[in-house]
Simulated scan of single mutants.
Amino acid sequence: MPHDKLNRRCVELFQHPDVQLHCWHPRMFWETRMKENPAPEELTEPKVDLRELEVLLAESAHVPSVCAEELNQEDPGRADLIRHMVHRGEMPYLHRPH
């Protein structure tokens, strides 16, 4: 999936009501220039690997991930670990973007 399309998906997942229950601030995942309430269209510069973020957000939103299989093929068990940590209520460490 192209970078911009994957970022858009992550931004949409981030706005999902089940994800919002976690009270995560966008600055955890995107460069916000210290803006307190950035608009969704301003979230264009990820601080973390978008595939890992997509797995985290999809699992939190209770929807299928589009990146989990690819991530597990590249780094065996990585997506599974992220999902497991979400279920335990823990925040996994997400790698920096490549």
Rank of each mutant, 00 (worst) to 15 (best):
V55Y: 07
P40V: 06
K47V: 01
K47H: 05
A58W: 12
H16M: 08
D18H: 05
A79N: 05
D49S: 04
A68G: 01
E69H: 15
P17Y: 01
A79K: 12
L50A: 02
P46Q: 14
M34L: 10
V66G: 08
L71D: 04
E69S: 13
E45S: 12
L81P: 00
Q20K: 13
V48D: 08
W24C: 07
P26E: 06
H22R: 15
R51C: 05
H95T: 12
P64H: 10
V11T: 04
L71K: 00
A39F: 14
P76I: 10
W30R: 00
E45T: 09
M1W: 14
L43W: 00
L94F: 07
H98A: 02
F29G: 02
R83F: 01
N37I: 14
Q73F: 09
V55M: 00
L81E: 10
H25M: 00
L43F: 06
A39C: 13
R33Y: 15
E45D: 11
G89A: 10
R9F: 06
W24G: 01
L13I: 00
C10F: 10
M34R: 14
A79W: 04
A61L: 09
A79V: 07
P17H: 00
G89N: 05
T44M: 03
P46F: 13
H87L: 04
